[in-house]
Simulated scan of single mutants.
Amino acid sequence: MDKEAWLKKAHDTVVKVAELNEEFTPDDIWDSGLEKPAEARWLGPVMNSAKRKGYIEKTGRVQPTRQKESHGCDVTIWKSKLYRA
């Protein structure tokens, strides 16, 4: 999958996860089945785009990642503005 196709799929996945969860982390995006690209950092611009569009906002909290290859670094906990209980 080329980068542009991956970015579109990632955006759609972020929207789907935001609709289903009041709060979530990038780990939840990966856990939803999004294929990891050559550079996992590609997800950052997707999250920032969703933030600019008003879909999500930072909670100001972090937690250790569940991704083994990231060695427990902290990831942002995001609040969904699309979630409907």
Rank of each mutant, 00 (worst) to 15 (best):
K16D: 11
L43N: 03
K53W: 08
K9D: 03
D28P: 03
G33L: 14
A50F: 12
P26I: 02
S80R: 05
E23T: 15
K36Q: 05
M1A: 14
W6I: 01
R61C: 01
V15A: 10
G44V: 14
E57T: 11
H11E: 13
L82E: 07
I29A: 01
H11F: 13
G33T: 14
W78T: 07
G72F: 06
Y83H: 14
R66H: 10
W30G: 00
I77R: 11
P45G: 15
N48Q: 12
R61Q: 13
W30Y: 01
T65S: 12
P45Y: 08
A38M: 06
S70N: 09
E69F: 12
N21W: 04
I56L: 06
K16V: 07
D74Q: 12
D2T: 12
Q63N: 03
K79D: 09
Y83I: 05
W78P: 02
R84K: 15
K16Y: 03
A50M: 13
H11C: 02
V17Y: 01
L82A: 10
E19K: 15
M47F: 09
L82N: 05
D12F: 03
Y55H: 12
S32F: 01
H71F: 09
E69N: 05
E23P: 00
L43W: 07
G60I: 09
L7F: 08
L20H: 09
E57W: 03
M1H: 09
E19D: 10
S70H: 08
V46W: 03
K9G: 01
S70I: 05
T65M: 02
T59N: 10
L20A: 15
G44S: 14
M1G: 14
T76F: 01
V17D: 03
V17T: 04
R61T: 06
Q63E: 13
N48T: 11
V15C: 11
E69Y: 09
Y55R: 04
K68Y: 02
K9I: 02
D12H: 05
A5M: 10
A38L: 09
E39D: 12
V75D: 08
H71P: 01
D28N: 13
R84H: 14
K8T: 07
A85P: 13
E23R: 15
S80N: 05
D31L: 08
I29L: 09
M1V: 14
P45N: 13
P37W: 06
E57F: 08
W42S: 10
A5S: 15
N21R: 14
R84S: 14
E57S: 15
K81D: 03
V15T: 07
P37N: 08
Y83M: 05
H11Y: 12
K8Y: 03
